[in-house]
């Protein structure tokens, strides 16, 4: 691997990869490679230190107990905070999204501290689980097409003043707060409840992460035919729920 290759770090596949989260890692890597970039993928198990020299960090979803263990180990390790201080890009999903916030409610019903990398706080909903296809409009500052994803969570995430919603939902629940927001971001750290996996459904978000990591404004085009076909189908499915 050359020093110029993009370092993509997957955090804790042993605990947080319940919802096909490897897909986000694969999509980022594939799309970078299609642009002629070298990609170095680093999978970090929860008994290993988080490297601080990565370019893009991905952290996925998981069940309640693994979420508690992952948060304990990430807080103790401290590597991800140092990476963010160094300017790394982080993209998180579901349980991983909650862990990046100030706190969440764990499997024992206790409020547990997260990493505080996103200005969000999560609690557990008492109503029905949010399950199904979601359609939203992405924050206009990000200049991205509509967000499509599949949600499956009971968590509720409230945004503080320094976090912006990633999207406003048209169909689906998103953050579960009832205000129509979905996910959160703050320039370098992103969080979402969307599965799918979300980067397979929204490849331009994967490209955005690569652009931010490389500090470039544009990437050469790639053949998005199958992604576009899938997006059209799932957007239609979200607008006409069964």
């Amino acid at each position: 691997m050359s020093d110029s290759s993009l370092r993509v770090v997957w955090i804790y596949p042993d605990l947080l990869s319940t919802y096909g989260d490897q897909g986000n890692v694969l999509v980022v890597g594939r799309r970078a490679q299609q642009r002629g970039l070298g990609v170095q993928r680093v999978d970090v198990r929860s008994d290993q230190p988080v490297p601080t020299s990565g370019d893009i960090y991905l952290i996925g979803g998981g069940e309640d107990r693994p979420q508690r263990l992952a948060a304990e180990r990430l807080v103790r390790d401290g590597g991800l905070q140092r990476a963010v201080d160094n300017g790394a890009i982080v993209f998180s999903v579901c349980a991983g999204y909650q862990i990046l916030g100030h706190e969440f409610v764990n499997d024992q019903g206790e409020r547990q501290p997260g990493l505080g990398l996103l200005d969000v706080t999560s609690t557990r909903g008492t109503g029905e689980r949010c399950v199904g296809d979601v359609l939203g409009d992405v924050d206009e500052r990000l200049r991205l097409p509509q967000l499509t994803g599949f949600e499956n969570h009971q968590g509720i995430t409230h945004l503080g003043p320094t976090a912006r919603p990633l999207a406003r939902v048209r169909f689906g629940q998103g953050n579960g707060t009832g205000d129509g927001t979905e996910g959160a971001w703050n320039d370098t750290v992103f969080g979402t409840y969307m599965h799918g996996p979300v980067l397979a459904r929204n490849p331009l978000i994967a490209d955005l992460l690569v652009k931010l990591a490389l500090d470039v404004n544009a990437l050469p085009p790639v053949d998005d035919r199958w992604y576009e076909a899938l997006r059209a189908e799932r957007i239609a499915a979200a607008t006409q729920p069964a």
Partner: peptide
């Protein structure tokens, strides 16, 4: 199961 994410596993 209505979530297809598992395809990526």
């Amino acid at each position: 199961g209505t979530d297809t994410s598992w395809l990526w596993d």
